[in-house]
């Protein structure tokens, strides 16, 4: 039997711009650390084994490098301690502080891409990364970028429509 001290590690983590010192069991996932230890509940627990994408967050592993804008991953699969010193952005970093919606959030709402909404934060996070990389994706590219996110309510039709709408909005906003 190991001692409690053996079970835990302490490390720093920046979440949505706020610095945290975390002490957690060494095998604990980033998702659990975010939700249970830091009270950051935007990322959701859908499956906890990397299949549904409801827990998607954007992580920069080298946050001091200007060119590391992070990438989106399943926070349930990442042992949190291996992200020591990293910067995590959740759904709370998308959209403005006073309730303003990002173009992607706005489109999800306008197109009816939200029903129960448990998958929505993950979809918005993944779709935002897609449009940051490619502002004019084809339908095939949208599907290729989003098949790590499951939705059980919508049948995906409105989600594809939302991403297409957001892409159009973004293109029109940047002449």
């Amino acid at each position: 039997m190991s001692s409690e001290a053996d079970e835990s590690v302490t490390f720093s983590l920046t979440v949505d711009g706020a610095a945290h010192e975390v002490t957690a069991p060494w095998s604990e996932s980033l998702l659990t650390v975010l939700r249970e230890r830091l009270g950051v509940r935007g990322p959701k627990t859908g499956c906890a084994h990397g299949r549904c994408g409801a827990c998607a967050v954007r992580v920069a592993f080298e946050p001091d490098r200007a060119d590391d804008d992070g990438h989106v991953l399943c926070s349930c699969l990442l042992p949190a301690a291996t992200a020591a010193g990293c910067s995590v952005r959740t759904i709370a970093s998308i959209g403005g502080p006073d309730g303003e919606l990002s173009d992607v959030q706005e489109a999800f709402l306008a197109e009816g891409a939200v029903q129960c909404g448990i998958c929505t934060a993950g979809f918005v996070t993944a779709a935002t990364e897609l449009l940051d990389t490619d502002p004019d994706p084809t339908r095939e590219q949208i599907e290729a970028a989003l098949y790590g996110n499951l939705c059980r309510c919508t049948g995906y039709g409105r989600i594809v429509a939302a991403v297409e709408t957001a892409a159009r909005t973004r293109r029109e906003a940047t002449p």
Partner: peptide, 22 residues
């Protein structure tokens, strides 16, 4: 972590510690 974490969850593996190569 994409294999180890589900394995721990599903109890098909136990771990006495992690050495992370990340």
């Amino acid at each position: 972590g994409t294999e180890v974490m589900p394995d721990l969850l599903w109890r098909v593996r136990t771990a006495a510690g992690f050495v992370s190569l990340r």
